[in-house]
Design a protein around this nucleic acid. Structure first.
Length: 228
DNA sequence: TAGGCCATCTGGTCCT
DNA sequence: AGGACCAGATGGCCTA
């Protein structure tokens, strides 16, 4: 990934996270019923409780769909079904006037590329399986870009949670008693605005969210044009 | 019906 | 030279 792509992802990641929570189920990142009691909307202590159970029947729409097209002479029906712009290209088309050797080489390259993309999709499926969002037949599978953005935010939140836990342990090791007001170290998944999108609270209003991130236009943020 | 998402093909570039 | 990687183009499927 080049620098500009990275910047793009950075710029839209929070937009996307907001959008994803709405499109792919409220349980993503503890925004919903699965949230820990007493810490409304904050980071769930055990994210694995949901997302690990979710890898049920593998979606047949993409990813690990390995059909008979692993060889050069791949299944032309499958190709057309997939929306190949040139289909099997028995005559005419870009390959029509090329020699048999060139055509064979081209098919070989195509097959390799297909395999490569399947591997990439398998990896994305693996990623989907370990990030917390609502895995259920009634919830749409995460798109590729959504998977990447959600995973990125998940990693960031895990890192912050770990840091907060470390601070908590250090605090407790000092032998201090817990008094009110609660020290920040005792709010393990709290006010980390840098990582957690909405002031550390999922209760942030729609208006707040949209105000905060409306400066970065994104197709994933189009809902902000709608009414809450 | 438009837009989003996807799989596939393709040609170019880089690397081994 | 051959393979990996990448981005653009294309068309199918699905949903709002």
């Amino acid at each position: 990934m080049n620098v500009s792509e990275e910047n793009l992802l950075k710029s839209i990641s929070n937009d996307a996270l907001l959008d994803l929570t709405q499109r792919y189920g409220q349980s993503a990142f503890g925004f919903g019923p699965g949230t820990i009691a007493g810490s409304p909307g904050r980071f769930p202590l055990t994210p694995a409780t949901d997302f690990l159970s979710g890898q049920t029947a593998k979606s047949n729409e993409s990813g690990g769909e390995h059909t008979s097209d692993d060889e050069d002479g791949f299944d032309s029906l499958e190709s057309r079904k997939r929306g190949s712009p040139f289909g099997d290209d028995k005559s005419g088309g870009p390959l029509g006037k090329k020699s048999k050797e060139q055509r064979s080489l081209r098919l070989s390259i195509n097959a390799r590329e297909r395999r490569r993309m399947h591997d990439l999709n398998d990896a994305l499926d693996g990623l989907r399986a370990v990030i917390p969002y609502a895995h259920s037949p009634s919830v749409r599978k995460l798109s590729k870009i959504a998977t990447l953005l959600l995973a990125k935010n998940y990693i960031l939140m895990q890192a912050q949670a770990l840091e907060e836990m470390r601070r908590l342990v250090a605090y407790l090791n000092q032998g201090q008693t817990i008094t009110s007001p609660v020290p920040t170290a005792l709010a393990p998944f709290g006010q980390g605005g840098a990582v957690y999108p909405f002031s550390g609270s999922a209760l942030a209003t729609h208006a707040e969210k949209c105000t905060t991130y409306s400066g970065t236009p994104s197709s994933l943020f189009k809902h902000c044009n709608d009414k809450p």
